[in-house]
Design a protein around this nucleic acid. Structure first.
Lengths: 234, 234
DNA sequence: CGTTATGTTGACCTCCTTCAAAGGCTGTGG
DNA sequence: CCACAGCCTTTGAAGGAGGTCAACATAACG
């Protein structure tokens, strides 16, 4: 068995040179020698749901890239409530604020079994300065964060609770490539959409009754994309 | 009268070397010779409320820096509604997506008399590659966009309409340095907070009755920051 | 001075929250 | 294997917050 990031058994030093997602994550475009020079401080992590990558307000020494799984970025509000402001999926970069600031702005928590690379900020800063490709990729990731935040405003924080839920399911449905996909908890759905847990539960239950989503014992099977899209545009 | 960006009469070629906001906008850190080399294609614009810098989906040739005034970024939703996803103020950069993409993602519209510099994307891209200071400033501006978007999610799209309005007034209150500050229309407030125009009007009227905000014929005078903060944290 | 946008207010009703209780799944220990 | 606790989901009932539609007031403007 050769060490390979795609092997779930293998945790530890990342081998980005043989990493399947290398081509669409941060280091796309680097040559193998370039990669070797910076691989040492990079760690590959496998995290189960509930694992915390970092906490809001904590010192920010590292940036993370998501190789598989699903991560939520959560903000604690002054009144004690919580709001999820982003969902991060394979190819996304987490904690970019580490490159320009001292502390993380959110708490990053694993929602679905995740394979993650942790990269010291100094490594990324140096690469950003020496490699035009990495630099360009970095700008694109930053813009991607902005786009995702905008999507949370326009799609998940606007309109009726039903329409928001339909849009969330469409967003999540895009990730259904592996069959072990599981729904977020109703509580997380509420925090994603700015509604209560009960309302989230009611709407999902109603969708199931209407045949818009199919699931067996909590695990996702499929959904009626057309009907959901119609609800989303209402 | 020497040509100076801070002179409202003077519109046209920007003289960033003598620009008062140079030190806190994009080109901070550049030497005067460096500035001279890239000033030619930069235009200084003075825009009245309602002016459109660019439209959502249009080709994106330029980036803008805000020297004074207030700009809104608006998104048109599939159902015909509109949502404001950001407010941009002096020191902010507008249309960063031009640097990594072909088209603008929002419509940028002037809310309050604005003084703006329009910079061709090629100029910024070149500076980004040649000047470490500009490069660093660019990353910070991008992160700032993310932070502002997050703030729209957590502060202006979460909680009761009353609490959102209080947070919006606090946000706007920070800009009250000049006395010609004017409130956004109730319609814009609704689009900012994800509520209807009528609800926005009701809440503002109620705030005025309760003495939380003071205004004379639509022009802002002052507000009770303490009481607003208490409402915002409810 | 009429005309048109914008702000305000009322009445009604829908949607969502709140509080409460019941049902289901999982793990643990007897 | 069963009993029980704990957590999450579901559902109910009541109330309130906000949307909708309409009328009216006020300011802006030619």
């Amino acid at each position: 068995m050769k060490p390979n990031c795609t092997n779930p058994e293998w945790i530890g030093r990342a081998k980005c040179a043989v990493c399947d997602v290398r081509n669409f994550v941060l280091f796309a475009g680097l040559s193998v020698p370039e990669l070797d020079a910076i691989l040492q401080p990079i760690d590959n992590l496998h995290a189960a749901p509930g694992a915390v990558l970092y906490e809001q307000g904590a010192p920010a020494p590292s940036v993370y890239t998501v190789r598989s799984g699903l991560i939520k970025l959560k903000v604690d509000l002054p009144n004690g409530c919580q709001r999820i402001v982003r969902l991060l999926r394979p190819g996304d970069v987490v904690g970019l604020e580490a490159l320009v600031g001292e502390r993380y702005h959110h708490s990053a928590i694993v929602l679905q079994d995740a394979d993650i690379c942790r990269i010291p900020r100094e490594v990324v800063i140096r690469l950003d300065q020496t490699s035009p490709q990495v630099h360009q990729a970095l700008l694109q990731r930053w813009q991607r964060s902005v786009d995702q935040a905008d999507h949370f405003i326009t799609a998940l924080s606007t309109g009726s609770a039903e329409a928001r839920m339909a849009r969330l399911l469409i967003l999540l449905g895009c990730t259904v490539t592996d069959s072990d996909f599981v729904f977020p908890s109703r509580e997380d759905m509420g925090a994603l959409l700015g509604i209560t847990t009960e309302t989230a539960s009611r709407i999902v239950a109603e969708f199931k009754r209407r045949g818009l989503v199919h699931m067996d014992k909590g695990s996702y099977i499929g959904c009626d994309q057309g009907a959901l899209s119609r609800l989303a545009d209402s």
